[in-house]
Design a protein around this nucleic acid. Structure first.
Length: 538
RNA sequence: GGCCCCAUCGUCUAGGCCGGCCCAGGACACCGGGUUUUCAACCCGGCGACAGGGGUUCGAAUCCCCUUGGGGCUACCA
């Protein structure tokens, strides 16, 4: 049976790189009728945040990547939180020590740092000097009494280690150069590389599909697996990595970094007010601007909103908030480093599962192209069943606290239908907003007013007003006829007529079709808005 | 620096393992035109790549080597 897993560390929102890894594992399990496990790697006390696990779970659910075993639903191989498996790691570490395959160390971080510096000065990799005699329990006691840190290292064999990667073939390493590495930290917690082996083995994971960044960890993990006698090795697949526009692995730091850039670029930026918007202190703000610290995501988002800058989407939630739907994300992410070989690009979840194959993974890194994502979203907005999209739209509106949220299901679907060709739900929201704002509260875009209303558009508005008030029933056809008639009479294009009306009704030059807009707004409110606009700008 | 991975249009990629069907195909972006009540969409057309150098071969995008470039890892992070 194919058993895969996704093992994030709960350090914040799920970002697209992680989502892609999760997706490939999920696809491979589903394709083979296997199992997909969610495991939380919370062995770093300092970095974990209490809400992060729930955030990751929410994001995976939104993407539709359901797992068969996990911390929230349990399973036969639990617990699925590493922090709850500590006794297991301790037990296996003890076993290794007894076998003489691992040993205690008492180095301080300063001593380690000195070793690193020495190695780097010699233009070499740091290799930990294995002691001639492994310390015993009495040494440990002594070290503890002296207040020295106690860690455990795995003794790597000094021989060639060959791993067989399903994507990259045989990759060779020199065990002697890799050196002995820590499996138990001084706080008693296992390191990632140790816990991952124990858990993968105990959870019977048969396929380890992860990013290329883990390739160097594999020889160590493989040796440990063998030493622990865990039997048949899992199949290893080290996928390409997702690169961002600026070069380098896509990282969640990009959002704060891009905000910092924006603040520095803004002339006369009121740093105090910006900090207040993010509810962070002056100290933290200074550290952030100096590039020393990163505020948390809510603070970053709030400051960006205050400044009115768009930050690049990195986390899965960012894409949700920008109006993308899960179908798009799953499809697009799947195509980053994989393709079905059929030339088909736009695919449903089912098609992805059916067509997925590890052997068609790409070896080279790929860049996350937001332009293409945008066009994918348009396609999926069209392809996905209407009710489903309406559901996503509702969630989106709620998250954005949009006035459009007041609309009922029928109206929502209507709006979505009118906006066929929109690339994001945010575009639909933006175009529809004016329908749900009070007549007096329309915000008029200065440029739009200048360009359309002040430039003689008021004349046409008056004509429209007169014609409209004479109509007794409104229909899209009737409104269209009326507007076209005016255009013809005046010998101008329809645009000359529709644009002033648009600005009067919406305050903007970007909105729904005017024919539908007038009908949906209703005669009275349309007239009211025309009057307001005429009074203000006519 | 050391170790490891990778290398086809601006981007994602097809093709490469089984050399000739590839003077390299698709998609997104871009450019030009059309359509149009705004934005978007839509239709037609166009630009555009085998990183460089050596081999092997009758023949190389495809196989080998070197160079260059990109990426990863180099923690008591995961």
């Amino acid at each position: 049976m194919v058993i895969t897993r996704f093992a994030p560390s709960p350090t914040g929102y799920l970002h697209v790189g992680g989502a892609r890894t999760a997706l490939f594992n999920w696809l491979w399990a589903r394709e083979n009728g296997g199992k997909f496990i969610l495991r939380i790697e919370d062995t770093d006390l300092r970095r974990n945040t209490p809400t992060a696990m729930q955030q990751v779970i929410n994001d995976l659910r939104w993407l539709g990547l359901e797992w068969d075993e996990g911390p929230d639903i349990g399973g036969p191989n639990g617990p699925y939180l590493q922090s709850q498996r500590l006794d297991l790691y301790t037990m296996y570490a003890k076993r290794l020590i007894e076998q003489g395959k691992a040993y205690y160390c008492f180095d301080t971080s300063a001593e380690l740092e000195a070793m690193r510096e020495k190695a780097s000065a010699e233009k070499n990799n740091i290799v930990y000097q294995r002691p001639a005699r492994f310390p015993d329990e009495s040494d440990v006691k002594k070290a503890r009494a002296e207040g020295k840190p106690v860690t455990v290292r795995f003794a790597m064999p000094a021989e060639e280690i060959v791993i067989n990667d399903c994507l990259r073939g045989e990759v060779r390493f020199n065990g002697a150069e890799l050196g002995d590495w820590i499996i138990i930290k001084s706080d008693g917690f296992p390191t990632y590389n140790f816990a991952v082996v124990v858990d993968d083995a105990l959870m019977k994971v048969s396929w380890v599909i992860r990013g290329q960044e883990h390739l160097m960890n594999t020889p160590g993990q493989q040796e440990l697996w063998k030493t622990l006698g865990f039997g048949e090795l899992p199949k290893y697949v080290h996928m390409s990595v997702t690169i961002s526009e600026g070069g380098g692995k896509l990282s969640k730091r990009e959002r704060p970094a891009s905000l910092r850039k924006a603040i520095k670029k803004t002339e006369g930026a009121d740093v105090e007010k910006i900090a207040a918007a993010g509810s962070i202190g002056a100290e933290e703000m200074k550290g952030f601007l100096d590039g020393k610290t990163m505020p948390d995501m809510p603070a970053v988002d709030a400051m960006a909103k205050y400044l009115g800058v768009e930050l690049p989407e990195i986390n899965v939630v960012d894409f949700f908030r920008s109006g993308y739907i899960p179908e798009t994300m799953v499809n697009f992410l799947a195509l980053l480093g994989w393709n079905p070989g059929t030339g088909q690009e736009i695919m449903t979840r089912e098609q992805l599962v059916a067509g997925f194959d590890i052997s068609r993974l790409t070896k080279s890194n790929s860049l996350f192209d937001r332009q293409k994502l945008l066009s994918f979203n348009m396609e999926h907005l069209r392809l996905t069943p209407k009710e489903k999209v309406a559901g996503y739209f509702k969630d989106f509106l709620k998250e954005e606290q949009s006035p459009v949220a007041k609309a009922d299901d029928a109206r929502l679907e209507k709006l979505l239908a009118i906006c066929d060709g929109a690339r994001t739900l945010a575009e639909v929201e933006q175009k529809s907003r004016f329908l749900f704002v009070e007549d007096e509260k329309i915000e008029y875009d200065e440029k739009a007013v200048r360009k359309v209303l002040s430039a003689g558009g008021g004349e046409f508005l008056k004509i429209i007003r007169d014609k409209l008030s004479a109509m007794d029933s409104l229909s899209e056809q009737a409104v269209e006829q009326m507007l076209r008639a005016i255009a013809e009479e005046k010998g101008v294009g329809l645009g000359k007529i529709a644009q002033p009306l648009r600005v009067a009704l919406c305050g903007s030059t970007v909105s729904l079709s005017m024919f539908e807009s007038v009908v949906m707004l209703g005669k009275d409110r349309t007239l009211t808005r025309i009057d307001i606009a005429l009074k203000k700008f006519g």
